[in-house]
């Protein structure tokens, strides 16, 4: 569980950063007539996104997420800045509760 969370987080941030570089550096340069950055970073993001998909998918199955949050998680890797927002949302709403419940269980008190 912890490993899956870590993998997801790493990939969310790496993919997010590369996508921001692509969109806010690569695309303007391409429009200005220097397509090299957009080409290379574009392919790099493509490859990273595949890895991100796998990591996010594995985590979503560990957390037993319903379809909608899963789809949001998977598609976040294609929209600039969204990976960061979605990562925080998933952490608050799904990861933390799951980890907390692993640590302590609601046992009735015995005296």
């Amino acid at each position: 569980m912890n490993a899956a969370v870590l993998r997801y987080r790493v990939m969310a941030y790496v993919t997010g950063v590369v996508l921001i570089v692509l969109c806010f550096v690569g695309i303007p340069l391409q429009v200005a007539g220097y397509p090299a950055v957009a080409n290379d970073v574009g392919v790099l993001h493509g490859i990273l996104y595949i890895i991100y998909l796998v990591c996010a998918w594995i985590l979503s199955r560990k957390l037993r997420l319903a379809t909608k949050p899963t789809v949001i998680m998977l598609l976040a890797g294609t929209i600039p800045i969204m990976t960061f927002i979605v990562e925080r949302w998933v952490t608050r709403r799904f990861i933390n509760p799951a980890l907390a419940s692993q640590a302590e269980q609601a046992e009735p008190v015995r005296r």
Binding site: M1, K62, R64, F94, P97, A98, S101, A106, P108
Partner: peptide, 16 residues
């Protein structure tokens, strides 16, 4: 069972 978040894990709660 140990893999599940608390909301889906069957928890034995004995109401006194």
């Amino acid at each position: 069972r140990d893999d599940l978040p608390i909301s889906v894990r069957p928890v034995q709660v004995n109401v006194g």
